[in-house]
Design a protein around this nucleic acid. Sequence first.
DNA 1: AAATCGGGGAA
DNA 2: TTCCCAGATTT
Length: 360
Amino acid sequence: MKNNPLNDYLKNFKIEAFQHDLIDWFQKEQRDLPWRQDKDPYKIWVSEIMLQQTKVDTVIPYFNQFIEKFPTLVDLADANEQEVLKAWEGLGYYSRARNLQNAVREVVTSYDSKIPQESKQLALLKGVGPYTKGAILSIAYDIPEPAVDGNVMRVFSRLLMIDHDISKQSVRRLFEQCVSETISQDNPSAFNQGLMELGALICTPKKPSCMLCPVQEHCKAYHNGVQEQLPVKTKKKKQKEIPYLVFVIQDDQGNILIEQRPEEGLLANMWQFPMIPLFEVDLEHSVNWIEQKYGIKVSVENNLEQIKHVFSHLIWQLGVYKAGLVSGNLSEKNAVLVPKNELANYPFPVSHQKILKHLI
DNA sequence: AAATCGGGGAA
DNA sequence: TTCCCAGATTT
């Protein structure tokens, strides 16, 4: 305990006054958000998954529609995966949706449809990591557990002037200790949410509004004028570009060929128009490749558009071509010919929604 | 420890 | 352009 660096950081930090100032501010200034209407642990859970790496404003319409479609945990457990992915369409990180449904089904079968209050049991659920576990325990069940996200690390890095690199996984545990030592036992929900709300509204990454900050007097970085230099975070390297050929293949009745992606990896189980990396096949040989893979003969007609789609770790350059189905029977089991007006029933990633939109 | 896994909005 | 968002999982 003597060599614990946390004691140095927390020296002179007025814990009780800080708790009061933070919670008081949160209760006055908190935003009116859909998942704050009640304390249904299921809704808290859904919101926390959706909010991972995603802005509040982006999540709101998805959350409302999702809860309308799957009002209870059992409704979500009983749904089919395609339906869930369709509700998640456009939100990104689609494994979140599949993991959530997997976890919800686990709760139904193993925990009598009640979300566990035990930290160990919660952590076993798919998609529930250290942050989400703490968020559910504190917000839904009023249990004083840390819920450390990017906001909390930014806020505490400034409050206590901690200059560890927050992009490193191991550093999160230091901030969990900060929260564990300072969290309000009376109102852990307001404390944790207050930290995040403060990070979102006041203690922002750039140009923090220190003059409006309810805990300004507790902030070591502000007193030293270094709030803009914190937190320390290494920047990520730039994405690799991959060029693809994409084919919109239409038969003489207007049906269009789409396929489901593999159940693992990027955009797992989402649907797309057939595509191939340009370094595997060039445009001249693409007809052969299509016949090999799908068992159909096509004639490539014209270039429809060029799409640049940016992911967090790579960039797709899509050369989209229109093609006509000449003959043959579809042999690829993950592919299907769909009437144009039924395409909207399938979940597409945004990159292929752009193509879909261009079609209509 | 580093890479993978989406997409959008702010500056 | 660059950053980064109520992160988790895999390698």
